[in-house]
Design a protein around this nucleic acid. Sequence first.
DNA 1: AACAATTTTTAGACTAATCTAAATTTTAAT
DNA 2: ATTAAAATTTAGATTAGTCTAAAAATTGTT
Lengths: 222, 222
Amino acid sequence: MIMHLSTAEENYLKAIFKISERSEKSASTNAIAKQLNTSPASVTDMLKRLSEKKFINYEKYKGVTLTSEGSKSATQLIRKHRLWEVFLVKKLRFTWDQVHEIAEQLEHIQSKELIMRLDAFLDYPKFDPHGDPIPNADGKFTIRNQSPLTDMFKGQTGSLVGVKEHQSDFLQYLNSQNIRLGSEILILEIMAYDKSMRIKLDQKREIVITNMVAQNLLVKKL
Amino acid sequence: MIMHLSTAEENYLKAIFKISERSEKSASTNAIAKQLNTSPASVTDMLKRLSEKKFINYEKYKGVTLTSEGSKSATQLIRKHRLWEVFLVKKLRFTWDQVHEIAEQLEHIQSKELIMRLDAFLDYPKFDPHGDPIPNADGKFTIRNQSPLTDMFKGQTGSLVGVKEHQSDFLQYLNSQNIRLGSEILILEIMAYDKSMRIKLDQKREIVITNMVAQNLLVKKL
DNA sequence: AACAATTTTTAGACTAATCTAAATTTTAAT
DNA sequence: ATTAAAATTTAGATTAGTCTAAAAATTGTT
Ligand SMILES: [Mn+2]
Ligand SMILES: [Mn+2]
Ligand SMILES: [Mn+2]
Ligand SMILES: [Mn+2]
């Protein structure tokens, strides 16, 4: 029943999970290749193996979906990744732009007990340092209402609950502007021309952000 | 200059280091194979590769020694292993018999920064949960005077500072007898026949231990 | 010094994971 | 409905790490 997955296999399942998450429909070979920075030929190869092992539903040329077994594995991997990120930020005082790479390695450590204890040690966090929900031991994600800042209008206020983009240069940009999870954002003005926004941050500083930045900020309306 | 090592390569270097540590002379192919639970043929293969990369001094049929580069890598790996063991015991409340396997995986996580911060988080521990010294960032081990309990005589008292054997069944046996690091051991009697010992533990309980157990207990004379 | 036992290396094969280039299938557009 | 473009799969090769069986070298013992 308990089937061992290699690091590579785990990464493929996670990639498929993430693609399915954002597009609803089945994941294509090319999309997976792009996500994993690998060649489509390698993906096809791996899809055959994962299908053989019943982690995915795969038919040639038709794309893939995760089986419930595959979905469970992917969710556990995400759980581990995000818990480790919390550990790195909360306990080791890394910043949110420094943790992803390290968590990419830590997520593959195999020990149920370790994760149980880590979770307890961190006080059962519900969200990671980027505001992403951490599935619980049963794989259940906390749902939260949130929307990209671009969905809000002039005069409205939101609290930053997450970021869509996780690239460290983006996160470092946010650091430089003192924009962090929990920051209060009041939209003062939206430029008609380029949709850039003038905002008031934490009832203090006024700054201008581009539409591209605003698209990547997830807020809860206040 | 900075050469990347795979998990397998790191494990070979650590094995060679440990063999050299206990026998002084160069490590033989068979000894490495035994340590890593692999075949001698695989070892020869890997020795060629590690020699090529200048981590070991290797001549066919002559056994191997680590170069200074190899020694440095092995020491860093041991440092990581032992720091993670401290983390698991001190922070996650694992017992000393549960941590080795997990640390075997954690030691391969690649991030200098992570280890620096972990070391600080743990308050720069000098010894791991089994009493083994943790090399500092420069690779320097703390030396301590210690001897196997079998080197001591009737009437002498020692404090347990380490164990030679790390198998979990041995550690669990010690747990069951309430023998732990720091325990005070007074030798009451040594049987001439089988060299088993009657000892007084922590000025409380009297127990009998076999010579095999005594050989694996490292004590500091009091 | 010869030979038997042991150790080590080589030969040849296998698996997982990857690649490039070529062939095939699907999809989209005329 | 053809045909061009894009996506996907296959073919064939490569690398790391492993294995078993056989050959070669070393070591130990008469
Ligand atoms: Mn991440
Ligand atoms: Mn994250
Ligand atoms: Mn250990
Ligand atoms: Mn240890």
